[in-house]
Nucleic acid binder design. Structure first.
Length: 241
DNA sequence: CGGCTTTGACCCGCGC
DNA sequence: GCGCGGGTCAAAGCCG
C-alpha cells in the first residue's frame, strides 16, 4: 500500500478519536494498542464529509466511532502469492522456496454499508472466500496498475456486520488517480477548517496516518502510537513526507 | 472487445 | 501424513 497516503488518513481520522489496533493475522484477533485522544471532535463532523466517499465518512466520523486503523503484525510467514509466483502451476517443486519477506499490512476498520470502499485506487477482485467463524465472505483485490502488487482484503466483521475490515498489503509504486483531484479539491476549494475532513479522501488518508505516527515517534516516544510506528517496515520511514 | 466479477478448483502452510 | 483453512488461479460470464 502507499503508506504515504496511509499516514494522512491516520492524522485525520484516528488521531481525532478512533482506535489504533494491532492485529495478529494468524488469529484474526485485534487488540487495541492505543485509544487516541478524548472524543472531542464535533459529533456531526461526518456531515461535513464528502458524500462521495463512504470511507471518509466512516473513518472520520466521531459519531460512529468506528474508524480504526490496524497494523497487522508481521507474524507468520507470508504465504500468499509468493508460492505460486515461484513455481509453475504444473508443480515445479524442485526449486527451493525462498520466503519472501512479508509485506507490511494495514487494516482499516470502517463502519460502512458497502464492502468495497473507494480509496482512490483501482482494484480488481481476484477471489472470494468464506471465512471460518464468520458469516461474511472475504474478498481479495489486487491493484490494477501495471507492476503494482498491492493487494487488499475486504471482509465484514462478524461481530459487528456494519464494520468493514479492509486490509492493505504492499506499497503502491504509482500515484493514485484520485490523488491530484483530491489534492486540488481539498487545497483549493475547501476552507482550512474543513480540510481535515475532506482530506480523508483516501490518498491523504494514508499519508496522514504515517505522518502522525512519525510525529508521535519524534515527540512522544512513550506513546503507544510510537510503538506502532516502530513496527512499520523501516523502508517506509524515509518515504514519509 | 476489454475489463471486471464470480466461483470452483487448486496449492500451500500449519496444527494435530 | 492428513485435514483444515487461507490465499490464488483461471475459466466463464457479465457489462459498458
Amino acid at each position: 500500500m502507499d503508506y504515504n497516503t496511509l499516514s494522512r488518513a491516520f492524522d485525520m481520522s484516528c488521531c481525532s478519536s478512533s482506535e489504533v489496533i494491532s492485529t495478529d493475522d494468524s488469529t484474526k484477533g485485534a487488540s487495541i494498542l492505543s485509544k487516541n485522544n478524548n472524543q472531542s471532535t464535533p459529533k456531526n463532523s461526518s456531515s461535513a464529509l464528502s458524500s462521495s466517499s463512504e470511507e471518509m465518512a466512516t473513518v472520520g466520523s466521531e459519531d460512529k466511532d468506528k474508524g480504526k486503523i490496524i497494523q497487522d503484525e508481521q507474524s507468520t510467514g507470508c504465504h500468499e502469492d509468493h508460492g505460486r509466483e515461484e513455481k509453475s502451476k504444473n508443480g515445479d517443486k524442485s526449486k527451493k522456496k525462498e520466503k519472501r519477506p512479508r509485506q507490511p499490512r494495514f487494516a482499516f476498520l470502517t463502519k460502512s454499508e458497502i464492502d468495497n470502499l473507494e480509496d482512490g485506487y483501482r482494484w480488481r477482485k481476484y477471489g472470494q472466500k468464506a471465512v471460518k467463524n464468520s458469516a461474511f465472505p472475504r474478498s481479495y483485490y489486487r491493484c490494477t496498475s501495471q507492476g503494482c502488487m498491492v493487494k487488499k482484503r475486504v471482509e465484514r466483521s462478524f461481530q459487528d456486520p456494519s464494520i468493514v475490515v479492509t486490509t492493505y498489503e504492499g506499497q503502491h509504486n504509482h500515484h493514485s488517480p484520485a490523488t491530484l483531484r483530491a489534492s486540488n479539491f481539498a487545497g483549493m476549494l475547501m476552507p482550512p477548517n474543513l480540510r481535515s475532513t475532506c482530506l480523508m479522501e483516501p490518498p491523504y488518508f494514508q499519508q496522514e496516518l504515517l505522518a502522525q505516527l512519525l510525529q508521535m515517534e519524534n515527540n512522544r516516544p512513550d506513546d503507544p502510537m510510537s510503538k506502532l510506528y516502530q513496527n512499520l517496515d523501516p523502508g517506509l520511514q524515509f518515504r514519509l513526507p
